[in-house]
């Protein structure tokens, strides 16, 4: 009974199935990247400031504690919507919030989670703010469910 299903049939399912789905995945990737994303990822506002901000985000390993669009570590708050949560959607309010926040770290409250002092200049904090503001405007299917992230 089981012998009717031979090894070469199994191999053909593997080869045919994976080839088909690799090609389908590539086609979907082209559609996502070339057609859909330009209208969703807010790339028109991807300024020099935002790019510098992304490098600061990476060079200080922010994702080692925080999540951004739900990805990263789960030790500290989600930051893809921090522009809305802490800045109320206003660029100037957010920038001044960020400067105050970054310069008061670490809190050194005993027993509480601590964020290091990254010694960023005001310009760098503004760049980081621009990056987070830009990120908050990516169309991510209305995630997270509420303002708390």
């Amino acid at each position: 009974m089981a012998e009717r299903f031979t090894k070469s049939m199994a191999r053909n399912i593997y080869l045919g199935g994976s080839a088909f789905f690799v090609l389908l995945f590539l086609a979907l990737t082209f559609d996502t990247q070339l057609r859909a994303m330009p209208e969703r990822d807010n790339r028109n506002e991807l300024t020099e400031e935002v790019v510098r901000g992304k490098h600061l985000w990476e060079n200080n390993n922010c994702v080692g504690c925080h999540s951004i669009m739900g990805e990263g570590a789960y030790f500290a708050p989600e930051l893809a919507n921090v522009f809305d949560r802490r800045g109320g959607g206003d660029t100037e309010v957010f920038k001044s919030y960020m400067r105050a926040w970054m310069n008061s770290m670490p809190t050194n409250i005993p027993g509480r989670r601590q964020m290091p002092d990254f010694n960023l200049t005001d310009q760098e904090i503004d760049d980081l703010s621009a990056f987070l503001e830009w990120t908050s405007k990516i169309d991510d299917n209305d995630w997270p469910p509420n303002i708390e992230g």
Partner: peptide, 13 residues
């Protein structure tokens, strides 16, 4: 392979 899509829900695609 297409299951990769479960990571694409909330990051822009």
């Amino acid at each position: 392979i297409i299951g990769t899509g479960h990571h694409f829900f909330w990051i822009g695609p």
